[in-house]
Design a protein around this nucleic acid. Structure first.
Length: 376
DNA sequence: TACGCGTGGGT
DNA sequence: TACCCAAGCGT
């Protein structure tokens, strides 16, 4: 190996070794040798079908593998086939997804399953174009499904491989555009054993080529790595400028009346649409949770229900994209329970139903307080 | 092209 | 504690 291995061809912007078939072969063997010894044992790699890989890939979008594992296993138990998924109610599907976030994924997956059963006799498409026509499946997911389930020759580009390729190319976030990274991935793609190849690159990116403190000393690819050669591998791992966050103050109230609690299904276009939530009020800068009379009147406006006193519960903190929400929680009794006064879609729900309904993450925590009779 | 979308793990 | 980040897609 010479010092010029990681040199970059000025015209194409790609490293000079990439044009050399022998070098590409050497690179591929290094990847495969590493994978043979270090592959992760993940449930969606055990017995692969189009359906199972599809479910796993949707769950894995923007979500770490370790987080997905228990959800994947439960989901397949509840919905073992595309037909069973298509027959399910959306509420059941969202309940199985609850806690994973990005609930649009679950609704798209459910819609797509219904489409496959209704229009395609239950046969999941086997081409990238047809897969990408289904909701929730983009270029990466289509390529992943076909390569993992059927070993079709499609390159992939996602968070792990994107970081790995940026480092290999010593590309800054501007130079390392998705267009050039996809092209790089396709040039590297071997002719056979594509599923293993794509898994290998993902595992390398996930376990060695991590965003911070990459394990270059254990990496089989340092000979070809521009970032390693530059001596500053870490700096290529993160790219995004931090977006400014906005703090929000909100109030949530558990209101009980005769064994029922007040809940509302979040509507289309709102955050957490399709999930159920306790009554929630956005507090302006001028409003304070300590001003109970004011809150009482805001609550009446929001729900149509009057409360007299309330007990404080813990304050929860959570984020939605660029908003950091401080959610103050209260518990109260309703003065009455006349359904005809309810507004904005609020409903009285049996406490036992809380187990069955899909709740937002904060609502689930509050429901736990309710069922255990206290706070952790 | 850039932003909205959720949550939990890691540091 | 308060960040950063994750097997992306849709608009």
């Amino acid at each position: 190996m010479t010092d010029s291995t990681t040199a970059v061809d000025a015209a194409s912007g790609s490293p000079s070794w990439l044009a050399d078939a022998r070098q590409r072969g050497s690179f591929r063997r290094a990847v495969r040798r590493w994978y043979a010894r270090h592959r992760r044992d993940l449930p969606w790699r055990r017995h692969r079908s189009l359906y199972r890989v599809w479910v796993s890939e949707i769950m894995l979008q923007q979500t770490q593998a370790a987080t997905v594992v228990p959800y994947y296993q439960r989901f397949l138990k509840s919905f073992p086939s595309v037909r069973r998924l298509a027959l399910a109610d959306e509420e059941q599907v969202l309940r199985a997804w609850e806690g994973l976030g990005y609930y649009r994924r679950a609704r798209n997956l459910h819609q797509a399953a219904k489409q496959v059963v209704r229009d395609l006799q239950g046969r999941i498409p086997r081409t990238r174009e047809q897969l990408q026509a289904l909701p929730g499946i983009g270029r990466y997911t289509a390529a992943a499904i076909l390569s993992f389930a059927l070993d079709q020759p499609h390159a992939i580009l996602e968070a792990n491989t994107r970081r790995l390729y940026r480092r290999l190319l010593a590309a800054s976030s501007e130079a390392g555009s998705d267009r050039s990274l996809w092209a790089f991935a396709e040039t590297l793609l071997p002719r056979v054993r594509i599923a293993d190849w794509n898994d290998a690159l993902i595992d390398l990116g996930a376990t060695l080529c991590s965003p911070r403190q990459p394990q270059c000393s254990r990496c089989p690819l340092t000979r070809w790595c521009g970032a390693f050669t530059s001596g500053d591998a870490e700096s290529f791992g993160t790219a995004k400028p931090a977006t400014e966050t906005t703090p929000l103050e909100e109030l949530a109230i558990i209101v009980e009346s005769g064994g029922k609690v007040l809940l509302r299904e979040r509507r289309e276009g709102e955050w957490w649409s399709g999930l159920w939530d306790f009554p929630r009020i956005r507090l302006s800068d001028a409003e304070s949770a300590a001003d109970f009379d004011r809150l009482r009147s805001r609550f009446l406006q929001e729900t149509g229900i009057e409360i007299d006193t309330a007990v404080s519960l813990p304050t929860l903190r959570h984020s939605v994209t660029r908003y950091h929400i401080r959610l103050q929680c209260l518990r109260a009794e309703a003065d009455n329970r006349t359904d005809d006064r309810l507004r904005n879609g609020y409903r009285w729900i049996d406490r036992e139903q809380l187990e069955r309904l899909p709740l937002t993450a904060t609502a689930r925590k509050m429901a736990q307080w309710l069922s255990t009779g206290g706070v952790d």
